[in-house]
Design a protein around this nucleic acid. Structure first.
Length: 286
DNA sequence: TACCAGGAGAGCG
DNA sequence: CGCTCTCATGGT
């Protein structure tokens, strides 16, 4: 047996999956790309991903036989053609879909997703990534990686962030978001808000429950509902999507974000969240 | 409803 | 180098 036999590898055959767009489009903040190879941590597992045409190659540093955690995170079993078929057949939507055929939504761990988007407000994606890497490096526990790979860390739990206090969060450049993250961590760690229980709630109730957390408004709540919980109707309205919707659908009016959100869930159908991600990516890359 | 604080780095000319 | 903008929220 080779010396590194503890590692595992697997290949998935996939269609209409653009790994780079999916990992790099701003729905997750802790992936690092080196020479077309992506390294990241999902839960407590370090993983290296590479796409080669219709194959997706994955490597872990520890023995792995059950890969369902990765299939779930990457949402490999989603029938994307069926999702696209539910989109409205209008010019903006066609252009958005055509600009990135294999863009997917991830299904991220709840707390990391929530914390990531609390830290995201009024920041650029590059900066959000810096903040979340800093949080993991300073407050998260180290996980085993393959030889030669960069050190990797678990995202710190809510309880761990509570123990750390506000100062390390300031050091991670959270700025005015630091007390929001700390207080939200207190509410989650103390059981005042039960993230797992939100899975079983309706979209509207789940959204209201998340918005009890400081630093969580309509936009952040929708991001967590979409990228963490997988509510397909969640439609985050950020500046890019706001711009897109106003420009493409309301050129003469200036609807509020709330009105746009309601319009979007009706107009874009049962998978409005996917439509949002295509519009977002289209607006940012054109 | 409309504005503003708070915060720091990237991107631009 | 100065300037603007940034996947918003909370408070007034």
């Amino acid at each position: 047996m080779p010396p590194h036999s503890a590692a595992s590898a697997i290949s998935f055959s996939i269609r209409d999956y653009d790994l780079a767009a999916t990992l790099g489009c701003g729905q997750a903040f802790r992936w690092r790309k080196r020479d077309g190879v992506w390294e990241g941590v999902i839960g407590a597992r370090w993983v290296r991903l590479r796409q080669d045409g219709k194959y997706l190659h994955a490597e872990t540093a520890v023995p792995t036989s059950d890969w369902s955690w990765l299939r779930d995170y990457l949402q490999l079993d989603v029938d994307i053609a069926a999702v696209l078929a539910t989109f409205p057949d209008d010019a903006p939507m066609r252009a958005a879909v055509q600009s990135c055929r294999g863009l997917r939504l991830l299904r991220q761990p709840l707390w990391e997703c929530l914390a990531g988007f609390i830290s995201s407000s009024n920041k650029q994606i590059v900066q959000i990534a810096q903040i979340n890497h800093a949080l993991a490096e300073r407050l998260g526990e180290r996980v085993p990686v393959l030889p030669g790979a960069s050190p990797a860390f678990v995202f710190p739990s809510a309880a761990h962030i509570v123990d750390a206090g506000v100062a390390p969060l300031r050091d991670c450049k959270l700025g005015y978001r630091a007390p929001y993250l700390l207080q939200s961590a207190r509410m989650v760690a103390g059981g005042e808000v039960d993230l797992a229980a939100i899975k079983t709630m309706s979209y509207a109730v789940a959204r209201a429950e998340l918005m009890r957390l400081p630093g969580v408004g309509p936009k952040v709540a929708d991001c967590v509902l979409l990228f963490g919980y997988g509510f397909p109707e969640a439609f985050p309205v950020d500046v890019w999507v706001m711009r897109a919707l106003r420009e493409l659908y309301f050129p003469r009016r200036k609807p509020t974000a709330q009105r746009l959100s309601r319009f979007a869930r009706k107009h874009f159908g049962p998978h409005a969240g996917y439509a949002q991600q295509y519009l977002f990516h289209y607006m940012r890359t054109r």
